[in-house]
């Protein structure tokens, strides 16, 4: 991780709550919440297990404006049960994506921060994420871009990691992590020699924002500042990637080449070296502008 002490940034995306992210990302005072906390629509599955519920069930959804354009937005609260998806949480997200098909906003913004399925309601959560995937892809089919933003403390993992990669485009900060199985899950199941989840540098080289950017999996790598996320979202909002046979064949090719080229690599830095980047071990230490300059022209097949 680069040392950012001494640089006073705007509003950290990483540290903000789900609600703060929305209010600072959108045009001021434009957010209108759907199914707000006063309705008290919380998960019914937590109380029987002695777990406190939240009036939002860990996700805030609604409508608003981004640079004057109407958008739908969802923001997961990592602080509440790791942003995990249960029945209510998932239904809010699915409903929002389906609403987009009728309402035709300029885009749907998904502020993703989740470990995936909420184990306390695992079956309902798994089906809910499957419903989100189908709704998301249907929204895209109707020509509405779905943008994912990742940069919170809990990262974006499990089924939500799949959801993220179903979006048209992703915006991430250096602190953001994106993957399927969290490092701690791999360590617990396969042993510390497979993945040492306490090795933070290793974790970031494997699932961190810079690595994801270099592989072409995310379109924008930004500073940890909500304003930077906003600027990036405004910039890419109209760059829709239609789902077509051609685009999926292209994606298939990119993923095949990645597997062929880096399938035996053991470490992110090894991949970056193979991509032709000089001094790959220095990348994690660079600030964002220097990093972007150092890797210019090397980013893998952007999808």
């Amino acid at each position: 991780m680069s040392d950012l002490s001494g640089i006073r940034r705007g509003h950290s995306y990483y540290e903000a709550t789900a609600r703060d992210r929305i209010s600072k990302l959108l045009d001021s005072n434009s957010f209108q919440e759907l199914i707000g906390p006063a309705e008290r629509i919380a998960s019914p599955h937590l109380e029987p297990l002695g777990q406190p519920c939240s009036f939002n069930d860990g996700i805030i959804i609604g409508t608003g404006n981004l640079n004057g354009l109407p958008v739908l937005i969802a923001s997961q609260e990592g602080g509440f049960m790791g942003g995990s998806v249960g029945e209510v949480h998932g239904a809010k997200l699915t409903g929002l994506l389906e609403r987009a098909v009728d309402e035709k906003p300029a885009a749907v913004l998904l502020l993703l921060e989740s470990g995936g399925v909420r184990l306390h309601e695992a079956n309902a959560g798994l089906i809910a994420i499957s419903e989100v995937i189908r709704a998301l892809l249907t929204t895209r089919k109707s020509g509405i871009p779905v943008l994912g933003l990742i940069g919170g403390a809990y990262g974006c993992f499990g089924g939500m990691g799949i959801v993220a990669r179903c979006c048209d485009a992703l915006i991430i900060n250096e602190e953001g992590r994106l993957g399927l199985s969290g490092p701690d899950v791999i360590e617990t199941t396969m042993g510390v020699e497979e993945f040492d989840s306490t090795d933070r540098a290793l974790v970031w080289r494997t699932v961190g924002g810079k690595h994801r950017y270099l592989l072409g999996e995310v379109q924008c790598l930004v500073e940890d500042d909500i304003e930077a996320f906003r600027a990036a979202a405004i910039e890419i909002i109209d760059k829709v990637q239609p789902l077509s046979l051609e685009s999926l064949e292209q994606e298939n090719l990119v993923l095949s080449q990645r597997l062929a080229n880096y399938g035996h690599s053991q470490d992110g830095a090894e991949i970056w070296g193979a991509m032709g980047i000089a001094d790959p071990q220095k990348l994690p230490l660079m600030d964002i502008p220097s990093f972007l300059k150092a890797v210019e022209g090397k980013v893998q097949g952007n999808l």
Binding site: T17, G36, P37, F55, N56, G79, F80
Partner: peptide, 17 residues
């Protein structure tokens, strides 16, 4: 005025509406 919600339900934390 509408309801306001502050804080997050997590370990050692709370939400207040």
């Amino acid at each position: 005025q509408q309801a306001t919600l502050s804080g997050v339900v997590s370990s050692g934390n709370l939400e207040v509406m």
